[in-house]
Design a protein around this nucleic acid. Structure first.
Length: 194
DNA sequence: CCCTGATTCGC
DNA sequence: GCGAATCAGG
């Protein structure tokens, strides 16, 4: 595969969206994440709000030539020079009784989306779930990957919310236990007349 | 071990 | 220009 215009375009788009190189590579197909990264650099669109793995990395070369406060030949922005009074600036002064800050978007407690927890799930599967949720890795949304169980636990409106994070079952988005409650054979869920 | 981006360097 | 190999880090 080569870098056709539209492939480059997609690359730019996705990179701009903060997609990882590997994700972009998969999307494009026919290239590795290395190829993507290489291209990204060649295109000069590197720096984006530094993610994780990408460490700042001090330039191995670049001598500390100008470490001292060099006199600016040109006038730098320097909007407010010596201004003892910042005056109009945000920073709300006092009232900071500090509290749970903003929380509960939803009155945390009542009408949660129908989680397949209660009804119509095989008891043994349920048992398994509550069991493994103790061993869950409790990942945050951003820590999820393609091989971490994406089963949500808890109330999203609360601090007590996380994703299972255990190793997923091949191809599935969930770990074995959660696959059990997520994907049910049509047979078992068919008319369960209470 | 999984992942991330960065760099190098032969092609 | 390209990207595998390697590196460095979470």
């Amino acid at each position: 595969m080569s870098w056709t215009d539209d492939r480059v375009e997609l690359l730019k788009k996705m990179w701009g969206e903060g997609q990882s190189a590997s994700q972009i590579a998969k999307e494009l197909g026919g290239v590795t994440r290395n190829a993507v990264i290489g291209k990204v650099h060649r295109l000069g669109l590197s720096n984006r709000a530094a993610t994780s793995g990408a460490a700042p990395k001090a330039e191995p070369k670049a001598k500390p030539a100008a470490a001292a406060p060099k006199a600016e030949p040109k006038v730098k922005p320097a909007p407010k020079a010596a201004d003892p009074e910042p005056e109009a600036e945000e920073t709300q002064p006092a009232p900071k009784p500090n509290l749970p800050a903003r929380k509960a978007i939803i009155p945390a407690g009542q009408p949660l989306p129908p989680q397949p927890s209660a009804n119509e799930i095989s008891p043994e599967a349920l048992a398994k779930v509550s069991e493994i949720e103790k061993k869950a890795k409790r990942l945050s949304l951003m820590e999820l990957t393609e091989r971490t169980c994406k089963w949500p636990v808890g109330d999203p409106a609360t601090e007590d919310f996380w994703f299972c994070g255990l190793p997923v079952q091949q191809g599935k988005p969930y770990c074995e236990a959660h696959v059990g409650v997520a994907f049910q054979p049509m047979s078992s869920r068919r008319d369960r007349r209470r």
